Simulated scan of single mutants.
Amino acid sequence: MIGSVLLGVLVLAVGGCACVVWAGRGGSRWVRAVATVTLVAGELVRRSERKRRRGVKSTAGGDD
């Protein structure tokens, strides 16, 4: 079950990347829409990762 979900996510990611490349070469309207959604989703993931990293304090400094 989990394997099929991960496979589905992988297919969506690869398809989104293909649409980004295709849109860069002048694809149709739906290709540009999928590419925009893919780029926005990637930016949201990047921002959430930055916020998560900021919230984690380093314990390697020896502050006990």
Score class of each variant (00 low, 15 high):
1 M>A: 14
1 M>N: 13
1 M>I: 09
2 I>G: 15
4 S>V: 12
5 V>H: 13
6 L>I: 12
7 L>D: 14
8 G>W: 04
8 G>C: 04
9 V>T: 11
9 V>I: 15
9 V>D: 10
10 L>H: 04
10 L>G: 12
10 L>P: 00
10 L>Y: 09
13 A>W: 12
14 V>F: 13
15 G>A: 11
19 C>R: 03
19 C>V: 07
21 V>H: 06
23 A>M: 00
24 G>A: 03
25 R>E: 11
25 R>G: 14
26 G>N: 03
27 G>H: 10
27 G>S: 14
28 S>G: 15
30 W>G: 07
30 W>P: 09
30 W>V: 14
31 V>N: 08
33 A>Q: 08
33 A>E: 10
33 A>I: 11
34 V>S: 02
34 V>Q: 00
35 A>H: 06
36 T>N: 05
36 T>R: 11
37 V>Y: 02
40 V>A: 15
41 A>M: 08
43 E>T: 11
43 E>A: 14
45 V>W: 11
46 R>N: 06
47 R>H: 05
47 R>M: 05
48 S>H: 00
49 E>L: 13
51 K>I: 01
51 K>T: 09
51 K>Y: 01
51 K>P: 01
52 R>M: 04
52 R>H: 03
53 R>K: 15
54 R>T: 03
54 R>M: 03
54 R>P: 00
55 G>H: 02
56 V>C: 09
56 V>N: 05
58 S>L: 04
59 T>Q: 12
59 T>N: 12
60 A>V: 15
60 A>I: 05
62 G>D: 04
62 G>L: 03
62 G>P: 04
62 G>A: 06
62 G>I: 06
63 D>L: 14
